[in-house]
């Protein structure tokens, strides 16, 4: 018989752990939806944002908040640079999908190698201690980090929803995502839409790495595994439906946590790969989250 408090504890821990996974999944899904690129460079950008914050805070002694702010700027600069001088060149040449894939993957690995050369491969965290204060509510341990992570994620998702639904840039992004040629015909700057997409993606990625880096240690290759999670969530959450990817990331995190009841802990890592195959085989176009259509629907006015 499963103890209810243990069950609730696992659900809570899974939910809080899904916070950064949601941000990575939404960032990946957003670029896929608007720019139409499987952005595997996201793993490298995740590593870059983490080590930028680490260098500024842990090595140079800047306050954490300032380090996060500068980390965001560095990641935005790297993302925009990659889009303008890399992806844009490939788009102009009408390069095949394979070239885009090789480019994004290689950028990711280049950054991982470069960071390993500079910072080494010893695991490091953003703060000296990754322990956080805890509160016990009805027998469930709720850490301050959990509350902070869930609040930050919820606020960012709400802001993203408002941005897409209410601002002109957001609506232009939606128009470009639907049909870039038609959007261009109506005078919308596709390049600007791509730029805004990468800026938002960089903000989400850096915030996700801040949350992860204050809870666990990182090596330059850690983000690759985390990005695979984002890819699976994107596939599961109805490809290109940004908030579907977020829901899928939460579901995946909970399933991974709850799997402890049925399989030994050392095999938990495999669940992700099983999901990947099941998704590809049975849900190649993703799971249709009808209940959340309001969130995923594209704004009609552009």
């Amino acid at each position: 018989m499963i103890d209810l408090s243990i069950l609730l504890q696992i659900v809570w821990t899974g939910l809080s752990a899904s916070s950064y996974a949601v941000l990575f999944a939404v960032a990946f899904s957003l670029v896929l939806k608007v720019v139409k690129v499987w952005n595997f460079a996201q793993a490298g950008l995740m590593a870059l944002s983490f080590y930028a914050m680490y260098a500024l805070h842990a090595l140079l002694g800047l306050p954490l908040l300032a380090s996060v702010g500068l980390g965001v700027l560095i990641t935005i600069a790297a993302s925009v640079f990659m889009d303008r001088f890399g992806l844009q060149t490939l788009r102009n040449r009408l390069s095949p999908n394979l070239t885009f894939f090789i480019f994004t993957l290689v950028v990711s690995e280049f950054l991982a190698y470069l960071l390993a050369m500079i910072f080494g491969t010893e695991p490091v965290a953003l703060t000296q201690s990754i322990m956080s204060g805890v509160n016990i509510i009805n027998g469930i341990v709720i850490s301050n980090w959990d509350i902070q992570a869930l609040c930050i994620t919820a606020v960012l998702l709400a802001l993203l929803y408002l941005f897409i639904a209410k601002t002109r840039d957001g609506q232009f992004m939606a128009a470009v995502a639907d049909n870039p040629e038609l959007a261009r015909f109506y005078g919308i700057s596709v390049k600007r839409a791509y730029l805004v997409t990468f800026v938002i993606s960089a903000i989400l990625v850096t915030t996700g790495m801040y949350l992860f880096g204050t809870r666990a240690s990182v090596i330059p290759n850690t983000p690759l595994q985390m990005m695979l999670f984002a890819v699976i969530a994107t596939l599961l959450g109805d490809m290109g439906h940004i908030f579907g990817a977020a829901l899928a990331a939460i579901a995946l995190s909970l399933i991974q946590g709850l799997s402890i009841f049925v399989i030994p802990s050392q095999w938990q890592g495999l669940i992700l790969y099983v999901f990947l195959f099941v998704t590809i085989l049975f849900f190649p176009q993703g799971v249709n989250f009808k209940k959340f259509k309001q969130l995923t629907r594209t704004p009609k006015t552009a």
């Binding site: 499987w38 999908n97 695979l228 699976i232 495999l270 790969y273 990947l276 590809i280 085989l281 190649p284």
Partner: peptide, 21 residues
């Protein structure tokens, strides 16, 4: 067999998962 019957992009993603898995 599972990934080729859908589309080329899926092979890429499944290949990463297959290798790491």
């Amino acid at each position: 067999l599972p990934s080729l019957r859908i589309s080329g992009d899926y092979l890429l993603i499944t290949s990463i998962g297959f290798q790491l898995g």
